[in-house]
């Protein structure tokens, strides 16, 4: 799926401890246009719950939240 999606912004959140990955995604979501996608890579497993919960409660969409090796890769779409 990530191969087909246009990425508007890459965020390297490796090494950041939760809830900072969620904070960084939130701070940066305004930098992509509505419909745009952020690709974020985190290493803290807490992000697997944090980022989807943030997206749900702010009305944005997580297209992908997957564990790849020791990293957690998210595709977050700005909905509004």
């Amino acid at each position: 799926m990530s191969d087909e999606t246009n990425i508007d912004l890459e965020l390297d959140l490796k090494g950041l401890l939760c809830p900072l990955p969620m904070v960084k995604v939130s701070q940066n979501i305004g930098k992509v246009p509505v419909g745009g996608v952020i690709r974020a890579v985190a290493t803290d497993p807490g992000a697997m719950a944090d980022i989807p919960a943030w997206a749900k409660s702010t009305g944005n969409e997580v297209l992908q939240a997957e564990k790849e090796g020791g990293e957690f890769v998210f595709l977050v779409k700005r909905v509004k």
């Binding site: 809830p19 969620m22 904070v23 939130s26 701070q27 497993p45 807490g46 697997m48 719950a49 944090d50 989807p52 919960a53 943030w54 749900k56 409660s57 702010t58 939240a65």
Partner: peptide
Amino acid sequence: MLGQLADAAIFKGDNAEMFNDVMISG
């Protein structure tokens, strides 16, 4: 930002089953 972080936490509480597997695997 603080409002969003608070809402995300409340969302997790209201939809605990949604995050169950992710949490346990973590």
